[in-house]
Every structure is written in structure tokens, then in C-alpha cells.
Amino acid sequence: MTRKRLVVIDGHPDPDAGRFIHALANSYADGATAGGHEVRLIRLAALDFPLVTSRQEWEGETGNPVIREAQETIAWAQHLTILYPLWLGDVPALLKAFLEQVMRPGFAFAYREGKLPEKKLKGHTARLVVTMGMPAFFYRAFYGAHSVKSFERNILRFVGIQPFEHLLLGNVEADADKRDSWLEEIFELGKRGI
């Protein structure tokens, strides 16, 4: 197996260690370590960064050391595993704010005169792991997994990250018995570096 550089982005905004996303992120990181991969973990709940509030601010270079370090970590990685709970049918606001800070022009893409933007994160791959209170099949069938599709098309593909996979975990609060099997599944994904 090829050793990979992996980044785990724990996108749960609540620092409470009891949140299932945190356990999943830890399990993936533990699996990656067991598989001989290099792994770095970014926990959004532990970061302090401002919101982007204007186009001018977004198009400029960030002066925030937290965001610069996250960009360096993402640039270093070959594969990103991004975990988040589904909130109001979408990513939590803190994760969206983080992505707006990190995926800036100049780092994640570059404008080009008369052409589509250059995708600066080509060669990276990603997996989204999304937890939710509703059944995952219902989220796929009724809602079309819209937040996942938007994330993949409007963020990951736009900056050149592909291929990507996703794993939807439904009924996470009601299915406590399944949590152990999900933690094992995530561990194995980390071990394989995918």
C-alpha cells in the first residue's frame, strides 16, 4: 500500500467531545496512522478566525495565521476527509465560513483573463462523511443529497479536487447500535487512505 498524506477536517462546530463527528474523525485518523499514512487533523471547533464579509477581503491574501496554517496543511495533503453534521439540510455555518476563508483566489484557484479559473488543488482527492438525524436513503431520495452535491460541484470540483466519494450516515441519534460499526468502517477507510 502506498503511504499517503491525509488531512482530516472535523467540521462540527460544537467542541463537546461527545459529538459523534469527533469520534468519527478520531477513528479515521487512528486508522490512517495504523495504515502507515501521515495524517493531520483540523478541528474547526478549536479554531478562531473571522468571517469573510466582502469580495475585496476574500480576493486578498489572508493575514490570519490559523487560515494560513490550514491552507499549508491542505496544500500538503494528497487526500482530504471532511466530516460534518447535516444542519438545516446543509453544512454548518462554521464549516462554510472556514471554506470561504481557505478556498481563496490565489490558493485554491486563480483567475485567468478570458478563461475559466485555474484549479490549483488538482491532484488532491476527497471524501465527505455526513451525519444526519433522518435516514440516509430519505436524504438521497427525497432531497437528492443536495448539500453533498453542492459541496462536490461548487467547491471541490471548482478547485480541482477529484475524484471524491461520500458516505452518508443516517439516524445517528436513533441508531446507537450502529455507531460502533460506523466507527470501524471509518477506521478502515483511514487505514486504506481513502
Rank of each mutant, 00 (worst) to 15 (best):
A32W: 02
L86V: 08
R55C: 09
V130S: 09
I194P: 00
L128T: 03
A176K: 11
E38P: 07
G63Y: 06
I21M: 07
F138A: 15
A174Y: 13
G60P: 05
H124R: 15
G31S: 00
K191A: 02
G190N: 00
F142W: 12
L168W: 13
A29I: 07
L88Y: 14
I194N: 03
V39I: 01
A141F: 14
G36Q: 09
E188V: 01
Y111F: 15
I21V: 15
W87D: 08
K120E: 10
E113P: 05
A45Q: 01
T62G: 11
A145N: 13
Q78K: 09
H79P: 03
N154G: 14
F142E: 11
T62M: 08
A110S: 15
K120G: 06
L183Y: 06
T131L: 00
A29L: 06
M1V: 13
D10P: 00
G18I: 07
L47D: 14
F142I: 15
V130P: 02
I155G: 05
L128R: 01
Y143I: 09
Q78D: 14
V172E: 11
E118G: 00
N26S: 14
D177L: 11
A32D: 05
D180K: 11
F158I: 11
R153Y: 08
G190S: 06
P85K: 00
D177H: 10
L95P: 05
Y143A: 12
G114L: 03
E57M: 15
L128Q: 00
D10V: 02
S27C: 00
Y84K: 02
I155W: 15
I186S: 03
G133K: 09
R104A: 15
I9Y: 05
F142Y: 13
L88E: 11
Q78H: 09
P105S: 04
D90T: 15
E59W: 02
T125E: 12
E118M: 00
V7M: 09
S181L: 04
V52H: 02
F98D: 02
E184R: 09
P135W: 14
Q101R: 15
W76F: 03
R157P: 01
D48R: 06
L167N: 06
L168V: 09
I9Q: 06
I74M: 15
S27H: 01
L95H: 07
I21F: 04
